[in-house]
Nucleic acid binder design. Structure first.
Lengths: 125, 125
DNA sequence: CTACGGGTTGAAGTGCACTCTAAGTCAAGC
DNA sequence: GCTTGACTTAGAGTGCACTTCAACCCGTAG
């Protein structure tokens, strides 16, 4: 598939896909007769993985590190697993933080709603 | 308390607190005889709230909007509640996303661990 | 044959949230 | 009196992750 279709199917823009290739986050794409990038299904899988890692808050530098390890073959598996384990812990911690944040928001919203009923200003912030 | 203590107690730097004041996210602080900022407990509460909103992914522009509404008195309560309700939904959605991300990470980690045992390369990415 | 909608490149620009710098003031301790 | 260290300001700089720009090429429809 061409870059526009890959963009459509991943939700990235063609610009962003070229940017990823430029910085080394995507392998250099094969070209068709016209010199246009031509992608297979593996590109879809890799971008999907990048999307998950991005959702996990992984910075691009770390994705690059992971991508380089992957390029070095299967003997880097344990190192890649370590990276993912570390990220897993960060994500778990972030979920905990967000759940606490959700409680704060719910409390504050409840305070505003009560204020709307009986005009007592509970909300200092 | 002076800015250094407020910084220590909130985990922000003094630079960041001055930056918040400059952009209007903190009220202009009262000064002591030397012209140094002098804070009360309310500053601590407000920064804690800002921290929660930041954890919730609220951009500074929206915090500014909220702060301005707060400055306009209690009749803006419903508008502030709406802002918090919207942010609450975003946080809830983000928790859902992160839980899915956690599953992806756990699956991949399990794949690497299995690979370490029987040398079958399950991990395409 | 020409217009059009793609595609290509390297380089520069953007927006966010800080973060740091330069040049100065001030109060307390030696 | 001098040094030290915390504070002050406006403004410039940083790092991240894109995003846009300028100038160009290529294949197909009319």
């Amino acid at each position: 598939m061409k870059i526009a279709e890959l963009a459509r199917r991943t939700g990235l823009t063609a610009h962003t896909i070229r940017y990823y290739e430029r910085i080394g986050l995507m392998p250099r794409a094969g070209r068709d007769g016209a010199g246009h990038r031509d992608y297979g299904a593996d590109a879809l899988i890799w971008i999907s993985f990048l999307g998950h890692m991005k959702a996990a808050g992984m910075p691009i530098q770390e994705m690059l590190h992971y991508a380089r390890l992957r390029g070095q073959g299967s003997q880097t598996g344990p190192q890649r697993a370590d990276i993912l384990r570390q990220r897993r812990e960060l994500v778990a911690a972030q979920i905990t933080t967000l759940q606490a944040t959700l409680s704060v928001l719910d409390d504050k919203i409840a305070g505003y709603d009560a204020e709307g009923i009986n005009h007592a200003d509970r909300n200092q912030t």
